[in-house]
Every structure is written in C-alpha cells, then in structure tokens.
Nucleic acid binder design. Structure first.
Lengths: 210, 210
DNA sequence: TTTTCGCGATGACAATTGTCACCCGCGCCG
DNA sequence: CGGCGCGGGTGACAATTGTCATCGCGAAAA
C-alpha cells in the first residue's frame, strides 16, 4: 500500500454506483484504504451515476447492474455511445451469462461478482486502468454459450407471467388477445424446456434474459 | 473518531457474517476505520458465524439474514438459546415485517437495512453495545401489523408452487395427494387475497412469510 | 366425554392454462 | 413477382388449476 499521496497526480480516480447505501459506503471505504485509489463520486442510481461520470470523467467507473432509474448496463452502453475514456467495471451479485454478454457488448472492461474476495476489487481497478480486462473466470468460459432464444414479445409476456398475472391481465396490459398471449407463453415454455409459465420465467431470469 | 488504540481494552469487538465476500470485506473495512471498533472474525455462512461467535464471544455480532447453511435469524435464535451475552444486529436488504418480528423474537438488538447510510452502522454498533435497541424507523411502526396467517403446510406448498412446480409435483414432494395440495393452495390464495398461486407466493415472500 | 380443530383426502365442476393447426397482412429478399 | 418469416390472431381440445362441499381421524380444549 503506497503512502497516501494527497495530490491526485498518480491516483486512480474512481466513481462508484450501487443502490444500497451501506454497501456503497463500504466499498468506498474499502477502496479509499488503498493509497493509489481515490473515490471522487458516489451514486445511488443509474441517472446519478451517468451524471457523475460525465462530469468527473474518472479513470474507472464501478457499477452494480440492478439499480433504480437506469441499470448499470444501460449506463455503460450510454458511456460507450458517448465515447468516454472511462473504463467500466460491472460489480454484481449475479453470475448470469446474459448479463456478462450484455456487459461486454456495452464495452465494459470488467465483470466481477460480489462474492469474490474483497481484495480483488482494488486489483481489478488497477488492471482495468491499465487497459486489461478482468472477467470472473467461471463466467468467462460459459459466457457465449446460450444466446437468448426468446423474442421481445416472449420476454415481455414471460416477465408479467412471472409476476403472477393471468393470461387475460397480460393481454390487457400489452393490448394483445388472450389467445396470442397463451401462444407466446407456450412458445417460450417449449424453447426453455420448462413445463409451465412459472418455471419458464424462473429459468429465463436465472439466465439473465429477463 | 478516536485515535486507533492498538490494545483492545476499550475496543468494541465485532464479528461479521455476510455471504458475499466482497460486501463482507467492505463492511469490515468500513468498521475498521473507526478507532473504537475491531473486527475480530468474519464468516461467510451461518455455521461459520455461529462457530466464530461462540469462540470469540464478541461484544456485537452483525449478520445478514439470507446465507447458506443457516440463516442469520437461526444463528441469532441459537445464540439466545445458549444465553450468549453478545448483542446481535441483523443487517439485511429486506424490509419485511415478518423478518423483523422473527429477529426480535430471536432476541436481536438491532435491525438495519443495507440501504441506510453507511455511517449509521458504526453508530448502531456503539448504541447496541450500550444496551440500546436500533431498529429501522419505517419498519418499527408496521412491525407487529400482520401476523402471518399461513399454516405450516400452506407455507410449504406455497414455496414450491412459487418455484414453478405443478400440483402433482408438489404432492409427490410432500407425500400428499394432489387434491390436498390444491386445497392448501386455494386456502392460501384466499387468505392472501391473491388471484392465483404465483401472486400468492410473491405476496407471501414480500411479507417475509416465505 | 363431547366438541372443536387441524391435517389429509375425495369428488365434482368451472376457470385458466398449454398445445396445435391454421389464417391474415406486411415487409424483405432472391 | 413469389415466397418466406414474423407479429398477431382464431378456434378447439386436453391438462392443470382453483373452488366447494364433505368425510375421517386424532389430539387438544371445553
């Protein structure tokens, strides 16, 4: 650990986004311990995060995926669209291939799981800042495995079905006919090899296809 | 912040349990910053946590609820059963009345949400160590509101139904007849004011009745 | 010792769900 | 131009699900 140099000359400037304040604060504390890393802003949702990154232009942006307002993946995609130089590290609970694929497509440099050892976070920040990629090894292999077989409609319908809505409710919600909804559901069920809508929804969710 | 006194004479000794290593490490870092708090052990699941608390006999034990092997609530209950002097703080994502009630029944001194401000954790530790209770204010009010109307059977059945099992599967799993399963489900659905098994399961879960 | 209650079970019936075959219109591509 | 795929839809049928009334049994309460 380097002696904390006050001037941020060689310090790696970091912005963190995470919706659980306590975890956010804790992660910041964790990084601040390192002498060469400085947390220049914290955000509790996607929009705040985007703002913070645009104004601070940090070296590295660490973000959760599931947040209010805008997901971390969306923020990453937006940053890429704007050609920001900031490197993005996704830090999430979910080891879902679909998430990783989307993260990489959004130009993320890192994808870490919250159950990795705490020390690895600072390491990852340093590596990423040097232009390297840091991907959770287990995920890296299966990442490009299954490429979401669902169509947009199937996804929508499945999401609502997973929340307990009946076919009729879903139909009303989406301005479709009930029969059509059942058709989509049926398609999704068979594509996923499930035996009913609930199982199908659960499966899709764990794959990150939502 | 007191000057870090190396001898642990007046230091508050803390054990932390949390299944996501990174969060665990971060929380520990957060507390270690405080001069008067010392993290003497960390656990990544319920059993480890119980062990750690029994051998370390810390002043305060901070634990997540949903963990492998044994939930934080179970650990708290076990500590109470053994008349440990250690105070327990539950630190969780879930603002569920049912969880809070069970936590209090298990003798916990604190119930904090992970989306509270990070600084409040250290405060809570100090207060709890002085014998005070620290309960999230929003939850405190509605805590004793609804007292879980479900019977054990209904709970079991509902849990499986929520995972997408069919009535037949559930019946097989529980060695019941399919009709009986449907009866329980029907009961649960009406008790919860839901309109089908999926919604019922979702409702029960958000109330912490699992 | 009755009565009540919870658990488990039947049977029957209506509603919802899952499956299939087939139809329409539109846009894209060879 | 003709064909194909895709979003959307119908109708029909079987399976599953949700609801009720009703029964038996054992244990706790009156």
């Amino acid at each position: 650990m380097n002696p904390p140099a006050k001037e941020s000359r060689k310090m790696i400037r970091v912005v963190i986004a995470e919706d659980q304040s306590m975890v956010l604060g804790a992660l910041a504390a964790l990084l601040e311990i390192e002498g060469d890393i400085s947390v220049v802003a914290r955000a509790k949702n996607g929009k705040e995060a985007l703002q913070a990154v645009l104004t601070q232009k940090p070296d590295v942006f660490i973000t959760d995926i599931e947040m209010p307002e805008m997901t971390g993946l969306d923020v990453a995609a937006e940053l890429r669209r704007r050609h920001l130089a900031t490197r993005v590290i996704i830090l999430t609970t979910f080891a879902r291939a679909g998430y990783l694929r989307r993260a990489l497509e959004a130009g993320a440099s890192g994808y870490l799981l919250k159950d990795m050892r705490a020390e690895q976070l600072a390491d990852a920040v340093r590596r990423v800042q040097q232009g390297l990629r840091v991907i959770d090894p287990e995920l890296a292999t299966e990442a490009w495995a299954e490429p979401d077989p669902l169509t947009d409609r199937e996804r929508q319908v499945l999401r609502l079905a997973g929340d307990g809505l009946s076919s009729g409710d879903i139909a009303a919600d989406l301005s479709l006919s009930e029969g059509t909804v059942r058709n989509y559901l049926s398609e999704a069920i068979s594509k996923l090899g499930a035996s009913n809508r609930v199982e199908a929804a659960r499966l899709a969710r764990t794959k990150g296809w939502l």
